[in-house]
Simulated scan of single mutants.
Amino acid sequence: MSEDTVALMAVERDDEPAAAKTPWYRRRWLRVLSWLGTAGVVTYGAVRLFGLETGFLLVTTVAFVPYFVVAAIVGAGVQAVVRHWLAAGITAATAIALAAVLVPRAVADDQPTAGGAELTVMSVNLYVGNANFDYIMELVEEHQPDLLSVQELTPGSPDAFTERGLDEIMPYSILEPDDLAIGTGLYSRYPLERIETVGRDAIFYQIAAEIDMPEGTDIRFMAAHPAAPASAERIPLWEEDFEQLPRPDGGLPWVIAGDFNATLDHENMRELLDSGYTDAAEAMGEGLDATWQPTGGYLNGLVKIPAVTLDHVIAEEGIEVLDWEVLDDAGSDHAPVVARLRLQ
């Protein structure tokens, strides 16, 4: 064998590793990105599953768990495409764990059998007085609520309702209108007496009252509006407002309706429910129906913040939930909601 042949064979052997380069899907930068994605998913999952949200960033982002589950599943699929199996498995497992906490909201619960009066409760956020009052009155006439919780009741709002006949339909009320989002109102078909010891220290007005219901099934009702966690400075106020919301205490049963500025993924909302309440939407298997989305957006409205569920009607355990509905919005960033209950 000639020296030239030996040299050529050596060159070919040297070229073999180059021909067997690392496949594209195993490139280091791609694996690093994949692991970073998995780390983000696991961190987010831990925050939600263990109630670790604190501070503005975590409190706001934990509201979007349903969307995050979808994104995590898509991410796991991408990792599978690039054959990063371990990362894909961890991402998928976390997504499944998060999806598991959402399932009860989509499955109707068995309800207690109550024998008292039926009660229809409606909640409306007036969007700082900019909502469509004519449409709200149409909803009132259609659904005939016994109790109406009104948030963001501005100084001119009570007169707007009076002009449209709300006082004739619901002749009893406690109203605290104010500028911006501070004001709140409670309208009722039945006599009511304010409970002065509840809801007085919140950043937004909140109104609690004892309702003189027919058939001897009196209740306590609250038009709720905890502070919005819209900035780092507001988070402590939001947390304090939730601590002050009434808990079942063995007295007359509570029903609370309004803009809670929290989803069922927030730890403070879950703690409130665990104290002895049922969320009407979750009880009906409709707990994933969104109620709030900003009217504006980014890039001239092309990109919008996803809709989430901030408006709730919660009833003390033992009260039967008969129906729940999220209605079309009334020119507000919040959709009106209505629940039908049967009291104990």
Rank of each mutant, 00 (worst) to 15 (best):
V65A: 14
V74K: 03
V69C: 09
A307D: 04
A160E: 14
P306V: 11
T113I: 09
L237Q: 09
E233F: 05
D265Q: 09
T184N: 12
E176R: 15
V107E: 08
A339K: 03
Q111S: 06
V6A: 09
E12N: 02
D109N: 06
V198F: 02
S173D: 04
S2Y: 06
P155K: 09
G165N: 08
A108R: 13
H143M: 07
M269L: 13
A7P: 01
H266C: 02
T154L: 06
D329A: 12
P236E: 11
P253E: 05
E193Y: 05
Y205E: 11
A100M: 10
A39M: 15
L180N: 14
P158S: 12
I136W: 01
S188C: 13
G297N: 08
F56V: 07
A20I: 00
V321Y: 05
V65W: 02
A117I: 10
H266N: 12
R13L: 15
G258R: 00
D201W: 05
V101C: 07
E196L: 10
T54S: 15
L126M: 15
G285D: 10
L148V: 10
M284D: 00
T309P: 02
E3F: 08
R220D: 01
A93D: 04
T54F: 08
P246R: 00
A209C: 09
A224T: 11
Y25Q: 14
G183K: 03
A209H: 03
F161D: 01
G51K: 05
L341N: 05
R164W: 07
F260K: 00
D4T: 10
S188T: 07
R340G: 07
A223E: 03
R194C: 03
P23Q: 12
L341M: 13
E286I: 00
I195Y: 04
M170C: 10
A208G: 05
G183D: 05
A307L: 06
Q293G: 06
E271D: 11
V32N: 10
I319D: 00
E12L: 11
E176K: 13
E16L: 15
D333W: 02
D14I: 11
L49M: 13
A114W: 02
L58I: 06
V81Y: 08
N300G: 14
G216K: 10
